[in-house]
């Protein structure tokens, strides 16, 4: 069986498999510079990057520089980072909740962020304020979910998910309220577009600000990733295996929430990736989180970069990312599901 063979290979060559997966990502990274309205040749991209790295004076026009470094580079980096962030959060949450149907917004982070962005838009705040408000309200929503979960006795992960559902629908209702009172010819449009997700407005400064929390969160998750295996066997079993489950759960929730909130506050709500990329990764490398998390990062970065390239080139006006991820992702996922026959019981 195909799946088997891959698994055996993975067991013995962990590093080589993840590094194999990196190659298409690197290729796509360079190709992405060529994609767009303004034509840029591969030579120009290589020359421009080389001149930046080695401080060589080049003969390229300033326009090409601007296109490559101020327009396409931030967008490419943001797409990769957001894809990676949502995917690793999804994979971590699925392990934490011992449930492959969980997505990173299960505890209400996206609903909170959507509300945060909408309220900032309602008060005609600046772009930076909208991002900050989205980020902050994303954290508030999860904090509410978590403390509600704590307040109920037993604090099983199921209770937490149920609290998350309640909080998410609460913020969903508040969001609807804001939409209802918003000016339909200005604010409402902005809100709706924000909710559908886009990377069109991302600039270098955004990328740098977002990179800090995302990198810290991903780094922490990666350093503790082997324990996810133990945790995913069930809370009680993990505890008898010596895992301090309360602490581990808290670390995972905080890291995932911070990186998801950072991603969402930057680009709006992009569903689907956090749910599906971990599955695709699991089909390729198996369920061991030690390999699954790095694989999810690479695949997530690849997928969102690909989608964003399509979003900005396929039609004359940009297609929102949230729409494309589902339109392209759903059939692709179903195809994989059929092919691999991986069934979740």
């Amino acid at each position: 069986m195909f799946k088997w063979k891959i698994r055996e290979k993975v067991a013995s060559h962990e590093i080589s498999v993840t590094s194999l997966m990196i190659i298409p990502l690197i290729l796509l990274f360079f190709i992405s510079f060529l994609v767009g309205r303004y034509p840029v040749s591969p030579d120009e991209v290589i020359m421009a990057i080389a001149s930046k790295i080695f401080f060589i004076n080049s003969t390229l026009s300033p326009a090409v520089y601007t296109i490559i470094f101020d327009i396409r580079l931030p967008r490419i980096l943001a797409a990769m980072m957001i894809g990676a962030a949502l995917s690793i959060s999804g994979a971590s949450f699925q392990g934490l909740f011992q449930n492959p149907l969980v997505s990173p917004d299960k505890l209400g982070v996206s609903a909170g962020a959507g509300f945060g962005a909408a309220i900032a838009i309602l008060f005609s705040a600046s772009v930076l304020m909208i991002q900050f408000s989205a980020f902050a309200w994303g954290l508030v929503a999860v904090a509410l979910t978590y403390s509600l979960g704590k307040a109920f006795k037993g604090t099983s992960m199921l209770t937490l998910v149920l609290c998350g559902i309640a909080i998410a629908s609460l913020f969903g209702a508040l969001l609807s309220l804001i939409k209802y009172v918003a000016d339909p010819y200005g604010q409402l449009q902005t809100i709706v577009f924000w909710l559908m997700g886009s990377l069109a407005a991302v600039n270098n400064q955004d990328v740098i600000i977002m990179a800090i929390p995302i990198f810290i969160g991903i780094f922490i998750l990666l350093t503790i990733r082997w324990r996810f295996n133990v945790l995913s066997m069930g809370e009680e079993e993990a505890q008898t295996l010596g895992v301090n489950i309360k602490r581990l759960q808290a670390i995972i929730i905080v890291c995932c929430t911070v990186i998801t909130a950072s991603a969402v506050s930057m680009c709006g709500i992009i569903g689907w990736i956090g749910l599906v990329i971990p599955h695709v990764a699991r089909m390729i490398v198996g369920p061991d989180h030690k390999i699954l998390l790095p694989a999810s990062i690479i695949l997530g970065a690849f997928f969102l970069l690909l989608i964003d390239n399509i979003a900005r080139t396929f039609t004359t006006t940009e297609i929102p990312l949230g729409i494309l991820t589902a339109i392209i992702g759903a059939p692709f996922f179903l195809y994989l599901l059929m092919k691999s026959k991986e069934v979740w019981s």
Partner: peptide, 9 residues
């Protein structure tokens, strides 16, 4: 009783 979620080796 053990409830399995992921098919670890």
């Amino acid at each position: 009783i053990h409830n399995s979620t992921f098919s670890f080796s």
